[in-house]
């Protein structure tokens, strides 16, 4: 755990140093799970001992997108859907840094869905933490690409007629080398999983199922944050190694969590380094 000495006079949370405390209080609702996911990430960074100035966090737009504004790393709050390509550029420019994309399901999978699959395909060295709250929270609870079939949101008042993505299956098929899903109830697993993901070379992806009482819990009769957590406890099923094809969320019966993919494949930067060595021997610059 944290390396700071805690004096009785000034009891500080060990991760305070990773926060822009001058920005608190945060904007998240009571019962929201994003803070827990962020805490797990800070713990992972701390436990791995990654120097604070060697971590960059890139977010898009949405409730989870605000993470970039609270963490005291180099942090970039970009446009809707684009944190992955922005982070791709940043990582290539600063390969020695640990670059993490922290954003929501709407941002990463709907408007940014194309970037997500292509980042997985090229196996760019990023860790993506995708907080899935099953709706667009920031705009007040609309249906998104992860909203369960028949679930109610402000734009699916009669129930969602569409079907959601199975995110682990999607990113695994696209080529991610590390894929896991946890809920914010599984803080310990989540932190360990983030630690693993941060140590992998290539594209790692962690879906974090998180309560959104306003946008999802209440309209779908799950209840407030605490009830949602209770719901996770009753419905979550840890199935490490499960084929991601079978990891679809059937929200009413069970929430499959676990580590589904953990394999090695040369990452974009690894290949790039080899490529440099090859290309720098080619003196060709003749016109034509």
């Amino acid at each position: 755990m944290g390396t700071q000495t805690v004096t009785p006079q000034a009891v500080q949370h060990p991760y305070t140093r990773y926060l822009r405390t001058d920005r608190l209080p945060h904007i998240w609702c009571p019962g929201c799970g994003i803070g827990i996911a962020m805490g797990a990430f800070l713990a992972a960074v701390d436990e791995l001992g990654i120097p604070q100035e060697k971590v960059a966090v890139v977010s898009g737009i949405g409730c989870t997108g605000r993470v970039a504004g609270y963490v005291k790393f180099d942090s970039y709050h970009t446009t809707h859907g684009r944190p992955i390509p922005f982070a791709t550029g940043l990582k290539i420019a600063r390969p020695e840094m640990t670059v993490v994309v922290f954003s929501g399901d709407g941002d990463l999978v709907s408007i940014g869905g194309n970037h997500l699959i292509h980042a997985a395909r090229r196996n760019i060295d990023l860790t993506v933490i995708c907080v899935n709250n099953f709706n667009y929270g920031m705009t007040g609870g609309q249906m998104g690409p992860t909203t369960p079939h028949r679930a109610r949101t402000t734009t699916t008042p009669y129930g969602n007629l569409e079907f959601p993505f199975n995110l682990p299956y999607l990113v695994a098929a696209a080529g991610a080398v590390y894929v896991a899903r946890w809920t914010v109830l599984h803080v310990f697993h989540l932190r360990e999983s983030i630690k693993e993901a941060l140590q992998r070379r290539g594209f790692s992806f962690i879906e974090v199922v998180s309560p959104c009482p306003v946008g999802f819990g209440r309209p779908n009769k799950i209840g407030e944050g605490l009830e949602e957590m209770r719901f996770y406890r009753e419905h979550a099923l840890i199935q490490n190694g499960l084929h991601p094809k079978d990891a679809a969320l059937s929200f009413r019966d069970r929430i499959v969590v676990g580590k589904f993919v953990d394999e090695a494949r040369p990452s974009f930067l690894q290949v790039l380094e080899d490529h440099f060595r090859n290309a720098s021997r080619d003196p060709s610059h003749r016109e034509g």
Binding site: Y76, R82, I92, A93, H118, A279
Partner: peptide, 28 residues
Amino acid sequence: PQLGGVYIQMEDELASMAAILGASCGGM
């Protein structure tokens, strides 16, 4: 690649633009 630089072909122009911003923040 002859100069230690990087060419990356992105999935679209949205991504291309975002990537050059990110890399510029890294100092390139």
